[in-house]
Design a binder for these strands. Structure first.
Lengths: 339, 339
DNA sequence: TTTAATAACGGAATCGTTTTCGTACCTTCA
DNA sequence: TGAAGGTACGAAAACGATTCCGTTATTAAA
């Protein structure tokens, strides 16, 4: 259709394709005069190099992939923004894939990326992910991969996380200080590293403050369909109710709000709530929600910067097998404070 | 590094590359026996076709691009989810680009997509976009493009919008019915088609209900830095206050909430609020926010489906030059109802 | 003046597929 | 029996860029 390629350009200039290519790539083997001629003609004829021919030849695509569980949770939206800010600076393209927390989909997506389509991968694993053969494959193939937030510990590469343990500890301590005795911990699934860290912080904080750990106060909401509502309703409807809730993810706090409204449980009077969340309008909830906010843009920017650095300098060593911690911040609001 | 290609596969099988290629593509020219052998060996050797070689040869990339202004507004996050749902079904890859409401960035992004990198484009134009040369180029190059939400009228292709006019009319009527006399309209910039439609609905509704239009009640918040707060604060602090606010975009409603809190204006008693918004937790705001919700996932799904249909059948006609309307829905909540 | 080096360019191979064009063999029908 | 057709495969050309080798003409060194 359009089809203006390097051969036609060369023809129009009375040069060989090899010369034109070198001129466009600013090779020292080409005279300044010729370079100018080529550049002008390329501009005039509106020449755009074919990315696939180039990728085929150079074994690089100038493209990276981001594999994430979901977008509705605005956590990942914000990370993407951070990533895109960096990749755009470096002239890289960004492919986005959603696993929808589904291991099979995750495997399938990964399998499509093993053939050189992308130069690097940034990933947050799905809830279900226990097997990691597919992740190992990426690493074996030598494709640079960086994990963030929901990381896979056993792959030797750099991972970015937030300080879930400390935040869990801090949030729990805050609730204790507000007079709470029966603090519940709500999480989606125990397997994933994130929740484990946060849970551990919670457990240790209870211990630290001399409160006994009640296993019944740890509520797993691993319903397939996202029907956390009923689970939480039953939980808050029992005789031995909690007086506070620490939610490992935002949606569980949201559900808690709905349930509380339904059961006429007053927040924060009867139930205090703290949630890991990046909601921007936590201030506007009724009551305003105390959150532990993750440094989302920083996640995206730092992980992407590291990846770009590796891809743009040759002979850079592989990513160090380390975990980099970007601290979250506790924002205390009405939902967790006594009047 | 990895490098298992069709030639090596052929060698291992004692066949010609052409035969292997045909076998893998299930050509009728190859015997069933050979096909099986090839398939098995391909599986065993973990063969993955090189996407660039294929794209180079076939002049198609199995990739589409989405160009959007921003992600923080969860409207676009939700649209992406709808798009991804469809593209994944068809085995397509999805590139995401943000213009950040910047015309220059938009042009740059578009220029990188004119060389065949993508088979199709879905786009929502930036606020600033008045020149459309770069958009015309896409169309001239024969790259299928679909606009959604913030459309470009003059390009002859299919556009998806929501019924801004009717929604504006309906929301305004609702406020009138709640007894409001001085209804303000808050928008970011008059230029963009979306706000114009909504504004028109507002104007006509006032007229329809016999209320006089006061130009002073139409507030443009086109501050660069997103500092709507002060603009709105001055607006709500004047003597001749409005008794209701219809916000064209979510952030303006949010700002209104903050300002109301600051000025101790009670919503909905002193000021009723309705907003175009896809916030999922409008219920939980204090007070719960009356919204006009756009069919975001439907936007994504329908636009992507149309694009997929065109890309997967040859000889489909060009997209009809039409505007498809997906209705928004008014969700009446506490912020706009009198007690 | 001859030789070596250098600058500036052209030719052809290459990346990994798909596809066009052959070709050898086998069947079928008149 | 011989022409026609079908089946199953191979050789080689394409796609559009980069790059490894030349090859000339000019300049520097001996």
């Amino acid at each position: 259709m359009s089809g203006i390629n390097i051969k036609k350009l060369a023809e129009a200039l009375g040069l060989a394709p090899s010369t034109v290519s070198r001129a466009l790539n600013d090779s020292h083997e080409i005279s300044e005069k010729t370079k100018k001629r080529v550049l002008q003609m390329a501009d005039k004829m509106n020449y755009q190099p074919n990315p696939f021919a180039r990728s085929l030849r150079e074994h690089r695509s100038k493209t990276i992939a981001m594999i994430i569980p979901d977008l509705v949770n605005n956590f990942f939206s914000q990370v993407i923004e951070g990533v895109e800010e960096i990749t755009q600076q470096f002239g890289y393209h960004l492919l986005v894939y959603h696993t929808h927390e589904n291991l099979e989909k995750e495997k399938e997506i990964v399998s499509h990326l093993l053939n050189g389509r992308v130069d690097g991968i940034m990933m947050s694993v799905s809830h279900q992910t226990k097997e990691i053969d597919h992740l190992n494959r990426i690493h074996q193939k030598g494709i640079p991969i960086i994990f963030f937030d929901r990381i896979c510990e056993s792959i030797p590469t750099t991972k970015f996380v937030t300080n879930g343990y400390q935040s869990g500890f801090e949030a729990t301590s805050h609730l204790v200080e507000q007079g709470c005795k029966r603090i519940a911990f709500l999480l989606l699934s125990r397997e994933i590293s994130i929740s484990q860290q946060r849970l551990k912080g919670y457990v240790d904080a209870l211990d630290h403050h001399g409160l006994e750990l009640d296993e019944k106060l740890i509520l797993r909401c691993d319903n397939q369909e996202g029907e956390y509502h009923d689970i939480i309703k039953n939980f808050l409807n029992q005789s031995n109710k909690p007086d506070a809730v620490l939610a490992a993810v935002e949606k569980l706090a949201i559900s808690t709000y709905y349930v509380a409204k339904e059961l006429e449980i007053s927040i924060p009077d009867d139930l205090k709530v703290v949630s890991f969340s990046n909601m921007k309008i936590a201030d506007l909830l009724n009551p305003s929600l105390t959150t532990i906010a993750q440094p989302t843009h920083e996640f995206g920017r730092q992980a992407a910067s590291l990846l770009m650095k590796k891809l743009n300098k040759k002979n850079t060593p592989d990513f160090a097998d380390e975990v980099i911690v970007l601290p979250s911040t506790l924002h205390i609001r009405a939902s967790s404070t006594r009047k």
